[in-house]
Design a protein around this nucleic acid. Structure first.
Lengths: 210, 210
DNA sequence: ACCTGAACACCGTTCAAGT
DNA sequence: ACCTGAACACCGTTCAAGT
């Protein structure tokens, strides 16, 4: 995180350049704003102001606002992938590890709902234009596929097409994540937690051998 | 649909009022715009222009843009509920009916992705402010719960808490819907269709008795 | 190369004024 | 009651100009 001391906009002397990794600073600041105020609260002018930089300085590093948002989404998929792999490894690459992956996934979405929404919400139109984003998203999904294949080898889950099976699991977990962060479950009720436990149990039954 | 002939903005004579059900016309026009250009493409100015009305006429019927969007979301939940009930009834209130509900749900989302996104996407902050929207959303969910209870009576699905079971099913179907309309499945591949068939089969296993 | 400020074409919303 | 146009405070983006 490249931040000014105390999080305040830096005082700027005339004629001075940013002279740091402005690209990095822009992404970090955008992420901070998105986490705090959502994507719809993200303005390039405010980002520039927070970094004590002109509101058009950004165009040296990003072609437009969408491309900045895409960079934020990319970071999200990267963090998500690392979280998933850590959970899977921590619990020993088996049934428990798979369940931990699900929990890690939901924990990510609940901790950073706005960030999660940016990753999936079609804020980047035609992702064909951002192959790095597609690649990062596929990397996160691959962690799930790998875990499925590993369990198939151990005879822990049925031997269907692992990609299809992983997509099914992803749907469940993504569905719960979205319903939770979009406030579709009764609030202040522990509903998300109970649903995720129940879903985990039913999901295990769905992917069981025979 | 209250439309001008040919879909063109109507010519307007000076001093003339709209004198129809402007509220209704505003919702229809907003829905049309959202379906065509997404929520982010919705501007109150364009809505007014399309209806040959001042861009502030809207404020007589809605407190702000959000409240117009909320009305569109409400319509969506109503249509979704009717679609679900029709599918359930058409296939005879059993296993086939339940599967048809799932297909109807996905068909709705795929046919009107932007509308579907508006229904769930937190465009209305703090839905407590729009109790009618909450009510309509709950109505759609209730159709699902009722179908679960009916199947439990027939011994077709396990006798867990029907609300919890319905939330689980909803998660799966909502997850597939979102991944599909957000372009997270490989395009031009029939992947959404195959996933939905596979998920339907696995889901049946997940909710089966014993 | 990297940054700047003025300018342009947009927004949602408010409000005094009209019928 | 319902509608209007001007005005206000915002946007993202472009561009000639600076270092």
């Amino acid at each position: 995180m490249v931040s000014s001391r105390g999080g305040r906009p830096r005082r700027k002397r005339a004629g001075q350049y940013h002279h740091g990794d402005l690209r990095r600073a822009l992404i970090d600041q955008a992420l901070r704003t998105i986490d705090k105020h959502g994507v719809e609260g993200l303005t390039l002018r405010a980002v520039g102001e927070a970094l004590a930089v002109s509101r058009t300085a950004l165009y040296r590093h990003f072609s437009d606002k969408q491309s900045l948002i895409a960079a934020v989404a990319r970071e999200g998929f990267r963090t998500l992938r690392l979280d998933l792999l850590a959970a899977w490894a921590r619990e020993g690459h088996g049934e428990a590890g798979f369940q931990a992956m699900g929990q890690a996934y939901l924990a990510f979405a609940v901790a950073r709902p706005s960030h999660y929404r940016v990753m999936f919400g079609r804020f980047v139109e035609s992702k064909a234009c951002d192959p790095e984003l597609v690649q990062e998203a596929e990397g996160a999904f691959q962690a799930l596929v790998d875990a499925v294949v590993a369990q198939q080898r151990e005879g822990l889950v049925r031997r269907d097409d692992p990609v299809m099976l992983a997509r099914f699991v992803w749907s469940v977990v993504h569905g719960i994540a979205m319903l939770t962060i979009d406030g579709q479950l009764p609030p202040d009720d522990g509903a998300p937690g109970r649903l995720s436990r129940y879903a985990s149990e039913r999901l295990r039954a769905a992917v069981a051998v025979e």
